[in-house]
């Protein structure tokens, strides 16, 4: 069985996605969970680039554009997420997700 470049890229991105998923599910530290989500986002970006580069593209720049926007959104997500982490820390003096069970401070 021979794999095309596109398939190899997709395998790479799905492996990265699963690493992020396992990290986000298994760790109890909020920061690591966030970073796992970031990894999953990055894996999605890799897919866009892979399809842009190796797939039949309708317009030459679409994949690249999407990734640029996606990076911007991911940056915003990271900033807000980590601010949330700090807010949680201030409330409960640790950042274990299991203990963040209250909706009221």
């Amino acid at each position: 069985m021979s794999l095309s470049p596109l398939q190899l890229c997709l395998l790479f991105s799905s492996a990265l996605f699963c690493v992020g998923l396992i990290g986000a599910l298994a760790r109890s530290n909020t920061i690591l969970v966030l970073l796992g989500v970031e990894l999953m986002l990055n894996a999605a970006n890799i897919n866009f680039i892979a399809f842009w580069r190796f797939g039949p593209a309708p317009s030459p720049a679409t994949g690249v554009m999407f990734v640029v926007f996606s990076i911007a959104v991911a940056a915003a997500e990271a900033a807000v997420g980590l601010a949330l982490v700090i807010a949680i820390y201030r409330h409960q003096k640790n950042i274990r997700l299991q203990e963040a069970v209250r909706l009221k401070g």
Binding site: S4, C18, A26, S28
Partner: peptide
Amino acid sequence: RIVAALLAGGATLGVLFGAVVSAPLPIA
């Protein structure tokens, strides 16, 4: 939790790999 996460992640990985390998992907 770690075991559950590994199982879930492994299952996802298996599904994704299977899909990627078997899907008729358009080639440039």
